[in-house]
């Protein structure tokens, strides 16, 4: 292409020089399409989880007295631990990305595996928690609190699961030698998703578990 494009390089050179060469893709905003799209998607997800959280809060306020409620089932110390686990997975995620940016492939893999494992631990904790709640008598259809609680945390859990799948995919790519600092953006975007899921849990943990019932 270079020969065809050469006439115009001269023309646009003045504009291009201010730009740090080819480090940035030549888009209007300077952001890559993928990154912009990911943030748009996350913006949209705010409304999704907002609706679910609002539904939960409303449902809880409408729970008839005497029905099995949050106070009867929640185990705050346990959930605190799993919340902490998810929070720390965000740290390992940024460390993975940072390793990849430096080209430390081995470290990258270690941190990615750690992130996925922490995520897996969180999911395992959630499964355990659901089982305990179920055994306490809180099924999905038991009452309005049960429906809202399982739906909200279930949606979040599904997001985490998808995140784990994506993390494992990057791991496979890395092992097959298809990942390099040049395309670290893919990992960065998965990280964004992962952190988003984490901040959703920050909200859920406080609003659903810690708020005085």
């Amino acid at each position: 292409m270079s020969d065809v494009a050469s006439p115009e390089t001269t023309v646009s050179a003045p504009a291009a020089t201010g730009h740090t060469a080819a480090a940035h893709p030549p888009t209007t905003t300077g952001l890559t399409h993928n990154k912009l799209a990911m943030w748009l998607f996350l913006g949209s997800e705010c409304l999704l989880f907002g609706a679910l959280i609002a539904t939960y809060m409303f449902a809880k306020s409408r729970l008839p007295a005497g029905e099995l409620g949050p106070n009867d089932v929640f185990d705050i110390p346990f959930t605190s631990v799993s919340s902490f686990v998810l929070l720390m997975s965000s740290l390992t995620m940024v460390l993975a990305l940072s390793a990849l940016n430096r080209g430390e492939e081995r470290n990258f893999r270690v941190w990615i595996v750690a992130t996925a494992l922490l995520g897996g631990t969180f999911i395992a904790g959630q499964v355990y928690e659901f089982t305990v709640f179920y055994n306490l008598g809180l099924g999905y259809t038991t009452n309005i609190f049960g429906s809202a609680f399982y739906t909200l945390t279930g949606f979040h859990g599904a997001h985490v699961t998808i995140g784990i799948v994506m993390l494992m995919s990057t791991l496979v790519s890395s092992v097959r030698g298809r990942l390099s600092p040049r395309n670290a953006e893919t990992v960065e975007l998965i990280g964004l998703y992962w952190h988003f899921v984490d901040i959703v849990w920050i909200l859920i943990f406080t609003i659903i578990y810690l708020f005085p019932q």
Binding site: M1, S12, A15, A16, G18, A22, P25, P26, R182
Partner: peptide
């Protein structure tokens, strides 16, 4: 002008 390494896309005027 999408691709990260500008595959033939000439750099857009900033």
């Amino acid at each position: 002008g999408g691709s990260a390494d500008g595959d033939g896309a000439r750099p857009l005027a900033a």
